[in-house]
Design a protein around this nucleic acid. Structure first.
Lengths: 215, 215, 215, 215
DNA sequence: GATGAATGAGGATTCATTCAT
DNA sequence: AATGAATGAATCCTCATTCAT
């Protein structure tokens, strides 16, 4: 967020003639920083995270971090987008089939994602959003715009479609689209923090939720 | 949490003969500390909270805090119970009527609580649990034992009752009791962090959820 | 400047009833800080001075400094007034005698001050003013208002008196009051930095200057 | 100052046979470095000056500076001579006329220089000398040997001449040669730091001083 | 020669904790 | 019991210096 070192504008035009370290090396280092920062912030939260911790994880010196991000806060802001990449993007991208009911469509596209959602540190992300969202509005904002609202809109859209087609459940889903993703949150909360040793089956809950809504 | 400074076992036995502050005064001061600490930790999270901040809120000197809790961590641990007091306790305490369906029972006892849940800083509590639960297992543990499990058990119990009585929805609720409280979490997450300016009506979502489950 | 711990408003009213360290102790510590900071800044200049250096000189921990001044810059600003206390104050305070010529008056009141000016670290002060005045306008400003202008005004005033009385030298002094203090500056520069091992006799130069101006 | 990277002894001897940059190029780069360093040090003082700042001003990379000077301190020492170039050199070089009084000689040769002295950043130089002279004796030393003493000796020499010729003012000038340059210092101090917005007319003060000394 | 990414020691500042009063 | 000045370890950040390209 503001510290991008201006890559991107070199395409054809022959071999780069730069002195010193290659842009590739720089990009790799930057990636290391981002990677390490993500891990550190997800592990520790913003306040408890230390630049030294990030540096250690990245295998770099502390000072190096400041070549890429001017402050700890900027580093945090800079990785927010990387942290909240929408896990449902691929699901949203798939179109509904002509004959397919909305229920079947959700079952086909969303259930697999829900099942996978845990393995990839989603609980940690949720934790960070909830923990720091109040003090770093940008975090909540990015999450809202990139993940939360798109998903809810996606659901609303298909709720409308269900109504149009006369499929049951459309009405209730249009009124309370959040009900569909509610199981996701209890699941992440339970599995990530409350009782990781007795995890809930988010996929199963989601399917049950689908069954309930669509009769 | 092992930090109580040993009051408590002195009650009758004639008029107290000691100089200095009365036990009442001490208890009052302790209450101030706990109160202030709760506010500070809920506001700031563990790391960002400061002992100075707690002292300021309590209207006490920093040193005084250490008369009641030996470390910041102990203070945090010491107030966990106060933080997570079960907001559903009264609801759980009410018995189901002989003629009452489980659905009606939940509607009668839980909906009002759900509606009130937001006003009393519940989102802040949720935030704290999620944020610090991983690093302070005791926090997650207390929450699990005092709030989460009791509520889920309560739901399970009445799901069994619904089955026994042949009321619809019992089966699904028995298999997925968390579904009933799922709206609570999306609601708190949305209203507390994601989009406080466009709050979800948790009560309405909960009722909708009840309707779905119990037909 | 801004961190004064509010002494001053306690006069009669019986013994102070404060808990904790006495105000006297606090005042003494503050004095230590100021003293040490003065020495450090005069020795090292602003940039090269370190808070650790100040703490060491004061015999205090680093953190303690921050109880009295919130930043290094504030500490610097806070001692500027102490640093530039007008060394000529007593001289200016003495009134000219009814029969006394202005030349004699200056000889009586200023020469002793000039002779003493070196011993009391005045060169170090001048050095600091010149060195940091550009980057810390407040420093130059305080020096100008507290020392430089008062002295020049004092000279101008008595130049006018000399003119009124028909004493020689008044005219030239009125036109160039700075000429009278010029020897002070070459002297301080020479003795403080250029050739401390071959100091100029500022008193003698000043007297010679007086002789020249007043014939 | 012992930092020259060993150019200089290669001149005739046929066409140079080396690859890479010519000695001219090197010399030019070195000049850029010196120029930039002077500006940076005069602006910021030694401690606050940064190698990055010098590099930026020079339009070079940081690493390049180290090809010419091994350390920041060496760079500073290396430019001291450039910083303190004697502004009075030309004046001192001019011989006194056979019929010319010493007073007239000084008026002819020194006044113009004095009038010009302000425009060329002399205050900055004085500031640097005073600020860093104590910690970088070489700075004071060079200034003393290149500027201060030559000028004072020049004055002494002509004071002796004035005495020999029976011109008035010779005695006093011989005893206090620094009196003649005193106005210069108050002037630079006032105009450079104390009150740049109300500058003193150094030329006028110097002339007045000449008038006083030579009757 | 020139570059600038990488380094890490050093400096300002914060804050949990102690202790004399 | 209560105070708050004092402490110093820990943290963020800067910058002189190095070195692979």
């Amino acid at each position: 967020m503001g510290t991008d070192s201006g890559q991107g504008a070199r395409a054809s035009a022959g071999p780069a003639r730069r002195r010193g370290p290659s842009p590739e090396k720089t990009a790799r280092t930057r990636a290391q920083v981002v990677q390490a920062a993500m891990a550190e912030f997800l592990d520790q939260g913003y306040s408890a995270a230390t630049m030294a911790g990030v540096a250690r994880r990245a295998g770099l010196a502390k000072g190096t971090l400041y070549l890429y991000f001017p402050t700890k806060e900027a580093l945090f802001a800079g990785i927010v987008r990387d942290i909240v990449t929408n896990p449902l993007q691929e699901a949203e991208a798939q179109a509904i089939g002509a004959e397919e009911t909305v229920a079947d469509y959700f079952r086909r596209t969303l259930v697999p994602v829900m099942r996978r959602i845990e393995s990839s540190g989603r609980a940690a992300v949720a934790r960070l959003i909830l923990a720091e969202g109040a003090r770093f509005p940008v975090l909540a904002e990015v999450y809202r715009e990139e993940v939360f609202h798109p998903l809810v809109d996606h659901i609303r859209l298909h709720a409308a479609r269900a109504i149009a087609r006369g499929e049951p459940g459309g009405e209730i889903l249009a009124r309370h689209p959040h009900l569909l993703i509610a199981p996701l949150w209890v699941g992440m909360v339970n599995n990530g923090v409350i009782a990781p040793d007795r995890p809930l089956d988010i996929g199963a809950m989601f399917e049950a939720s689908l069954d309930l809504i669509f009769r």
